[in-house]
Design a protein around this nucleic acid. Structure first.
Lengths: 162, 162
DNA sequence: TATTGTTATACTCTATAACTATA
DNA sequence: TATAGTTATAGAGTATAACAATA
């Protein structure tokens, strides 16, 4: 367990005395970027905590979901979808393969590349993880009602989909 | 190296080429956490790019803003406000001090601690940085109109406050 | 003995360059 | 020569433990 969170640069939820963050940052309060970092940290830490029961990181979960939706994709495609560099895909996939959640299958036409697929185990676990992620979402946004959640999701998508 | 062999399914042609994040992640599209991570990354990268012109990181900017609002605070307070551990404050403050943006002043009553203050230079730079951050916010959320921006900020604050 | 700031250290994440094996 | 995957490596960011000076 690591505690990580940084408003400063990276992640985790504070949970401090009311005196600190709540009041010390008034100059930053009008920035969407600052509020989003704080909120994202809360969501992320919640998910990390829940996934840790399965010894998985958010990136692994995303990878499983992407593979499920795009069976047979190549590692370069996966890297692109995860917004990481190809070298980072290697240990990630190694981990999934070592746990028999996914497999690399040599491509027939081009023997340099692999097609990536989920195993039955991987598919079953992914189904569980989707529920966990949905729970995490609800838990971390428990201050919102369902209409607000819907609106927030719409706005967030609009921000990054261009 | 770890290749397992569970699935004998036939390798298939690579998913697509132009197909990237926009379409490969449809299973994750209903998660606020996923959308927020994507959106936050966009905002954060935009800000990082702009601050780099001043050789600063978001954490340094946040620190300047917090010191400005709380002149004389101790390093432990700053760590708490930034949601980082005290040891991480040291190099951060060293950097700000070396650039004459902030100063550590020995506390009279308790000689173990310092009071942290902005220099005039620091105050002036912070004023600039606030404009830059506001521009970055606008730029990275250019898909939204002002009403949507306001609503997004409200929802984000509601998520992490409380 | 407890606390403030610091040093030392380690683990994660991320990015780049170079290597292999195919093409 | 170009490409897919891999290896090696380096740089951030973040965490903990232990130390010095002070209380």
């Amino acid at each position: 367990m690591a505690k990580s969170s940084t408003i400063a640069a990276a992640p985790e939820a504070p949970a401090d005395s009311a005196e600190t963050q709540a009041s010390l940052d008034s100059a930053l309060d009008d920035l969407i970027g600052y509020a989003m970092r704080r909120a994202q940290l809360k969501l992320f830490q919640n998910l990390i905590g829940r996934l840790s029961a399965h010894d998985l990181r958010p990136a692994q979960f995303s990878a499983l979901a992407i593979i499920d939706q795009n069976p047979g994709l190549m590692q370069a495609d996966l890297a692109k979808a995860l917004a990481i560099e190809p070298p980072q895909v290697v240990p990630l996939l190694n981990k999934l393969e070592s746990r028999a959640l996914a497999v690399r299958v040599r491509c027939k036409p081009d023997k340099r590349s692999y097609g990536i697929f989920l195993s039955k185990t991987g598919e079953a676990l992914l189904k569980e993880l989707k529920l966990i992620a949905a729970e995490s979402d609800m838990d971390a946004t428990s201050n919102l009602d369902s209409q607000e959640r819907e609106e927030l999701l719409r706005l967030l998508k609009k921000v990054y989909q261009a």
